[in-house]
Amino acid sequence: MAMQVISANRLVDGLVVYMTGGGGWSERIADAQAVTGKEVGEVAMAAARVAEEARIIVEPYLIDIDESSGERRPTRYRELIRAKGPTVRLDIGKQAEL
């Protein structure tokens, strides 16, 4: 079964964030809490909706990830671009800060 993390955009600045184990939100996917299985995913999504209600984030959703290379990477290319930044501007986005 695929591992997943919850991603969203932060309300105040719109930046991509990931839900961490303590119920917080990080700009780094490496900090995210990974979940496996439908039920665990639903529990995590319920926590994310609480953060949405609290006006911390907007539009949370689960994304599939892969850690087989030793690095945590989203499986969809779209999510990889969200995690790093525009492929045509390596000087901006999260990739510029890593």
Binding site: D13, G14, R55, R78, R82, P86, G93
Partner: peptide
């Protein structure tokens, strides 16, 4: 919106009417 008086569903059409979208990386 920041004070919680508007939900995202209520706020989204208002921000769009002012040209503010939410895209992949940011607004």
């Amino acid at each position: 919106r920041m004070a919680g008086e508007l939900s995202e569903d209520e706020f989204k059409p208002l921000r769009l009417m002012n040209g503010l979208y939410l895209q992949l990386h940011a607004y």
